[in-house]
């Protein structure tokens, strides 16, 4: 029984970290992997999703609907930002970093000015379960299922839908896709919107567990960038296994040495990966299968 309890505890921590990494990096990975844009406003799309979710939930919507509303609003904002700013910077990656950073500053400060320095939270639903002598939040188990569902959903979307085929064609050979009649501008807009919506979804899913402040997006930033850098450009071959490996490293180090070493472990891994596998996991995996 004691063994079972410890195994469950370890699995739970691993799953918890894995879910956090996958959910927080999905939007960033889609935008970077598909479009090559490094979106420094990622955290603010997360914040947008969280704020909309909390407002919608307090207005009386059931939580799942509120979370979807948050994702949709963040996606709509994302498409707007793409049309107004990002579109003009597709061939200027460095400029797009500066531009998205500027958007992130404007969003954080704007929310602070308009909505104040904090927003009341909505409380974590579902309560807790007992395993042996320890108790666990049930909602975080739901988050783990959501992370797996998210990966499955994105796989279906990109590899088994018309949108996915056209999106991948647009990314790989934009001129050819364009010649074949694909509206590439619209595809870029939709892809960026999808990335923003995924960020909003992350915010919505974690909104009930966190403090609602304008800077809340920043707490996702390190983890999501680390996952995308380690994973490389492809979300399935790269980000998903990267999240699993990083979750193992982070959960293990945090369990043995505390939070500080968990953070150090993440960052050391990134440094090693950049040095040894500059293309990330996906670059390496694809290279060996070729």
């Amino acid at each position: 029984m004691d063994l079972l309890q410890n195994v469950f505890a370890m699995l739970y921590q691993f799953g918890d970290t894995f879910a956090f990494l996958v959910i927080s990096c999905a939007g960033l990975a889609v935008i970077f992997g598909m479009m090559g844009v490094i979106n420094l406003a990622h955290g603010e799309f997360i914040m947008c999703g969280a704020y909309v979710t909390a407002s919608a939930a307090r207005a009386g919507l059931p939580l799942p609907v509120a979370i979807l509303t948050g994702a949709l609003v963040a996606g709509a904002v994302g498409m707007l930002v793409e049309r107004m700013v990002i579109r003009h910077l597709y061939h200027r990656p460095l400029d797009s970093i500066i531009a998205t950073w500027g958007i992130s500053l404007i969003a954080t400060q704007g929310v602070l000015i308009v909505l104040g320095s904090t927003m009341q939270g909505i409380g974590t639903p579902l309560g807790s379960i007992e395993v042996g002598s320890r108790s666990y939040s049930l909602y975080r188990l739901v988050l783990m299922v959501c992370a797996l569902g998210l990966l499955g959903g994105l796989y279906l979307l990109f590899y088994h839908s018309r949108f996915g085929v056209i999106a991948r064609a647009t990314i790989q050979k934009p001129h050819m896709a364009h010649a074949l009649g694909v509206n590439t501008g619209r595809m870029y807009g939709l892809t960026f919107g999808l990335g923003a919506a995924l960020a909003g979804l992350a915010g919505g899913l974690y909104a009930p567990t966190m403090t609602m402040v304008p800077t809340m997006g920043a707490t996702f930033i390190v983890e999501s960038f680390v996952t995308v850098v380690v994973g490389g450009a492809d979300i399935f071959v790269g980000a998903a296994p990267a999240a699993a490996i990083l979750a193992l490293i982070k959960a293990g180090l945090t369990a043995w040495y505390g939070q500080l070493f968990g953070q150090i472990g993440l960052l050391v891994t990134v440094i090693l990966v950049i040095r040894i596998l500059p293309g990330g996991l996906s670059g390496w995996l694809k290279g060996t299968t070729r």
Partner: peptide, 12 residues
């Protein structure tokens, strides 16, 4: 336990 500033996930 000492928690670095900015950490928001406390599962462990």
């Amino acid at each position: 336990e000492f928690i670095p500033l900015g950490v928001s996930q406390f599962g462990q």
